[in-house]
Amino acid sequence: MKYSSFILAGIVIFSTVLAGSAQWRNMVPRRGNVQQTAVRTVENVQEKAAAVKQDVKSVAASVTKTAETKNKVKAAEETETEFPGTNDQWKDSLSVDWIAKEAESHKVPPHFNNRSVLRGDQHDGHAYGRYTEADLRLWESETVRLVMEGSRIFHDAELLGSTNGVSCDMCHPDGANTHPETYPKYQVQLGRAALLRDMMNWCLQNPCRAEPMSGDDPRMRAMEAYLNATSSGKPMKYGKH
C-alpha cells in the first residue's frame, strides 16, 4: 500500500509516453478518442499538403520552362494533386507536339522494332501471343517520350541548373563520348567504381557548375534514357576504359 502511489504514478507516466509516441499514435487509434484521432488526421493531411506544396515548388524551379508549364504547376499547387509538376512536360504533348519539335532539332537512333513479338495466334492463350500493333505503338511512344525529354534537358543549360551557361551537348554533341555502355567502371579520377549517373553528376558540378541531381530526379532518369538511346547498337562492355 505504501508503494501503490508510486506504481500508479509509474503507470500514468508510462501510458502518457506511450500515448505521446508518434508510432503509437499513428498505428493504433484508441477507442473513445475519435475526436482526437480526427484532429490528428487533419494535422497529418495538412502536413502532407505542405510537403506536396514544397515538392511542387522545388520541381517547378527545376523542371518548368515555359510560362504555360508554370501556369500548370500553379494550377497543380492549388488543387494539390499527388505528383504534380514532374509529368507536366508530358501532359503538354496533349496540346503541343513538343516531342516532334525536339526530334526536329536533335536526332536519336530509332526505337527497336518489336514486330517479331506479333505472332498471330501461334501462342494462343499465352501472354506473348496477345500483343497487338497498339501495344507496340504504346511501348515506342512512351519510351521515345522519355528519351526526348532527356534530349531536351541535355541540350538546355537552364534545365540542367547550369550557372555558367554550359550544357552537356557543348562537349557531347548527340551524346558522343559519354559511353554509357562502359559503365559501371572504375573512374580513376573519382577514385571509385562509378555509375554513369556519378559521372553525369561530376559533369553537372564541374563543367556546368550546377547542383548534382539525385538518382531518381526525373531529369536524371530522362538524361540516362537519352544517353542509353544514343549509344544504341554498341555492345555493353562494363569496366571498359
Binding site: E104, S105, H106, H155, D169, D174
Partner: peptide, 10 residues
C-alpha cells in the same frame, strides 16, 4: 541558340 547547338538539326 539554334546555330550554337552543334548537333541541332533545325
Amino acid at each position: 541558340k539554334t546555330v550554337a547547338g552543334l548537333d541541332n538539326q533545325a
